[in-house]
Amino acid sequence: MSPVFQVQNLNKAFGGLAVTQDVSITMNPGDRVALIGPNGAGKTTFVNLVTGHLDPDSGKVLLGGNDVTSLGPTPRVRQGLVRSFQVTRLFPDMTPEEHLALAVMQRTGRTGAIFGHYQAKADVMAEVAELLRTLGLDHIATRKVAEIAYGQQRLLEIALALALKPKVLLLDEPAAGVPQSDTPRIEAALAGLPSDLAVLMIEHDMDLVFRFARRVIVLAAGAIIFDGSPQDVTRDARVREAYLGSYANDRSAA
């Protein structure tokens, strides 16, 4: 299987501080990878480099074999690299239906009749209805996002990302801030992601990481210190020192 997503020797420094050091990751279709690391490990910088919001000092990002390093965020989305957001960044005055219709229209390039009624495109609306059903959002399809529950907003983010039919999906803490009662829905949505989609999840919640990921990458001080199975990650001495130690401390303090 040819890799769908490759990061090769990525480097980035702010001033004299190296925040990303020689990071290389290869992912195949269907991969479920969790990217973890203590605060300040450089996860956010890494995501910004990959999505095109930051330019690397050196290194490459490849999507399906194509070098996209020089492209901005929007063309990368068009090529199938889609990111959901850590902080809810939906459009508060728009409905879930409008969100998804927009995403589907953008993906399919069905924006020719821009002054036509957006609901007039039957194929677009059929796909929107299907996404709403899959994520259990159909009953709130025409409510403004500002009025729906936080857990539903997070589900809509996933729906929105799926509407773009990504090849690679970056999920930034999909369950953060969601009430305990709603997390099963999020996890069900994650479990139901298309099987050929490569998913890279940035996550703090280790329980979720162990349930979701089949591979874990640990970032510390901008460099990868571990890349392997979830079973092995807890046994790795460097990881314990860099990450799980502070995680365990957090736990015992909480």
Binding site: R83, D93, L102, Q106, T111, L160
Partner: peptide, 26 residues
């Protein structure tokens, strides 16, 4: 135009959150 057309959806999205709209490809 603003409430019902494809353009209106794009406009409202850009207004609500330009960065997010751009990341959807708008």
């Amino acid at each position: 135009l603003i409430e019902r057309t494809s353009f209106g959806v794009k406009l409202r999205a850009s207004v609500d959150n330009a960065a997010m709209a751009a990341s959807l490809g708008v």
